[in-house]
């Protein structure tokens, strides 16, 4: 092989590279997309989980929305107050004091409390089990199936199945809402962390059927709704629901509940 062909090859490849590089530079200048500097700065402060808890498609989406002023600076549920403050500084506004929110599971039917009507074999996923007429192995078709679909989607290790029912770790939960979306029985709700009393049952069965299926079920007697002075408890079908915004935490409902299922958190 002679030296000339080597030199020629290097020269050709080098020249092609130079031309392409030049073209790229021109294209880069010509088709430049104007990016708001604030958006980049905001994006840098966001946690980067891309969990979707803010309602935007990932952290990039939220950063763009905040930079444009379409979303409040404390929209990121994961970052919470510290991130909101930093973003507020970038945006040059005051961060409103946000209330920490957490997920809450409206079921407390543990293995002991909620009776089994059969043994479930099959795919270990609540969504799949919920498709069985009658809804899986628990006698109560409204309750937590305990197969952990919520555990699988949680990126913060904040929800676990303990003794057959999902339990939220309040210190780790960032209220991203993924578990809310995945639960086939719609048992999980995002509530203010300050809420004092909650009804941990979602059964729409009648009192007698609830009693037969589970020892910690709401029998729908509606005594609590009459006891509440702040109009914070209402019946949703056969189960009472506490409105955390109105509840002042006086505890009268809990004292009155005949089945003692309204509990202090």
């Amino acid at each position: 092989m002679d030296v000339l062909s080597i030199i020629l090859t290097v020269a050709v490849v080098g020249a092609v590279g130079l031309i392409i590089g030049l073209l790229l530079v021109i294209a880069g200048e010509k088709f430049k997309v104007e990016v708001d500097e604030k958006e980049i700065a905001v994006r840098a402060e966001l946690p980067g989980n891309n969990c979707g808890g803010c309602g935007y498609p990932g952290c990039d989406g939220l950063a763009a929305a905040i930079a444009k002023g379409e979303a409040p600076v404390n929209q990121c549920p994961v970052g919470g107050a510290p991130v909101a403050e930093k973003i507020a500084a970038i945006m040059g506004v005051e961060a409103e004091a946000g209330v920490k929110k957490v997920a809450f599971v409206h079921c407390s039917g543990t293995c002991e409390a909620a009776k089994d009507k059969g043994t479930y074999f099959g795919i270990q996923d609540c969504r799949s089990a919920a498709a069985i007429p009658g809804g899986g192995s628990k006698s109560c078709s409204y309750g937590c199936k305990g197969l952990g679909s919520c555990v699988k989607v949680c990126e913060f290790d904040a929800i676990h199945v303990v003794d057959g029912v999902a339990v939220v770790d309040r210190s780790k939960c960032v209220a991203c809402g993924k578990c809310v979306a995945v639960c086939p029985n719609h048992l999980i709700e995002i509530i203010p962390d300050t809420a004092k009393y909650m009804v941990a049952c979602s059964s729409q069965d009648k009192g007698k059927d609830v009693k037969n299926a589970c020892s910690v079920g709401c029998i729908g007697c509606s005594l609590c709704t009459r006891e509440c002075e702040y109009d914070a408890i209402h019946m949703n079908g056969n189960v009472s629901v506490i409105d955390a915004e109105k509840c002042v935490g006086c505890g009268k409902c809990a004292a009155k509940c005949p089945v003692k299922i309204i509990k202090a958190r």
């Binding site: 074999f121 099959g122 795919i123 969504r127 799949s128 089990a129 498709a131 069985i132």
Partner: peptide, 16 residues
């Protein structure tokens, strides 16, 4: 593997 059962449940989900 619980194949048929899984499909039965999926078919229910899709139908719903």
């Amino acid at each position: 593997r619980p194949l048929t059962q899984g499909f039965k449940q999926m078919r229910q989900l899709v139908a719903a």
